[in-house]
């Protein structure tokens, strides 16, 4: 466990807990994409299948339970809590997430390390996590405004992914048997940046790139936040309301 990974887990924890607490206290989910929350609940469910069979550490198990609990609670609030439900913007949150789930499932069935149910489900969760934020980013682009609830949520998620990449780089240099993925990944990241930040292109490219490896999906996921970070920091610097360009 290195400092980057611990910091990454903490920012990931903060992002989900801040979202859950805010929805619980102000009883509103304005600006939050239910599709993204459902995708995250699916990511955690398919990734933590081994929560009761393989014990890594108390920290690992507790964090898994918190992530599972918080993601399902957020989905429950947005689907069944009568007050919260009213503030859900279903007219704009129309990203057909089956277009994300199916390609990731097919990719996981084609490209994995071993053909076992747990391994394929784990690979599927890695691919899906990379694109799970897309409905939320599309919703932000459509509604054009970002109230601080969603802004902080996406910001902390982006911070979590960036710290995880630092964690991978750190492990690459400290653990000898780490894979030599930096070269391929960095090469494709350059290509990715050349394509620009429109969501649709991001979606196509990111699904395409997932085929390379689980590492790639981590990188792709972080790159998806790149343009959001750019706008978020600019708005924070100029102290203006954050609006995203089309």
């Amino acid at each position: 466990m290195n400092v980057f990974r611990l910091a990454g887990d903490m920012t990931h924890l903060i992002s989900v807990l801040v979202l859950l607490l805010k929805i619980h206290t102000i009883k509103s989910c304005a600006g939050v994409s239910l599709k993204t929350q459902e995708l995250y609940a699916l990511v955690f469910s398919t990734r933590y299948l081994d929560i009761f069979t393989d014990f890594t550490s108390l920290y690992n198990t507790v964090m898994k339970l918190i992530f599972l609990g918080s993601s399902f609670s957020i989905v429950w609030y947005m689907r069944h809590h009568k007050l919260v439900q009213r503030s859900y913007d279903k007219d704009h949150d129309t990203f057909r997430h089956q277009f994300l789930v199916l390609p990731c499932l097919i990719l996981a069935l084609l490209i994995h390390e071993q053909f076992t149910f747990k391994e394929v489900m784990w690979t599927f969760s890695i691919y899906l996590e990379a694109v799970a934020i897309l409905p939320q980013l599309v919703l932000l682009q459509r509604t054009r405004n970002i109230d601080n609830l969603t802004g902080q949520y996406v910001f902390f998620l982006g911070a979590y992914r960036s710290l995880y990449i630092l964690n991978w780089i750190y492990r690459y240099f400290t653990e000898p048997h780490y894979v030599h993925w930096i070269s391929t990944t960095s090469m494709f990241c350059v290509v990715l940046f050349c394509f620009g930040f429109t969501i649709f292109k991001w979606y196509l490219i990111s699904v395409l790139l997932l085929t390379l490896s689980a590492w790639m999906s981590g990188f792709v996921q972080t790159l998806l936040y790149a343009d959001f970070f750019y706008y978020y920091i600019n708005s924070w610097k100029n102290n203006v309301k954050l609006t995203l360009q089309a």
Partner: peptide, 10 residues
């Protein structure tokens, strides 16, 4: 293998 390395991560 890659995925074993990543398994101890969340």
């Amino acid at each position: 293998e890659d995925s074993e390395l990543l398994k101890d991560e969340l």
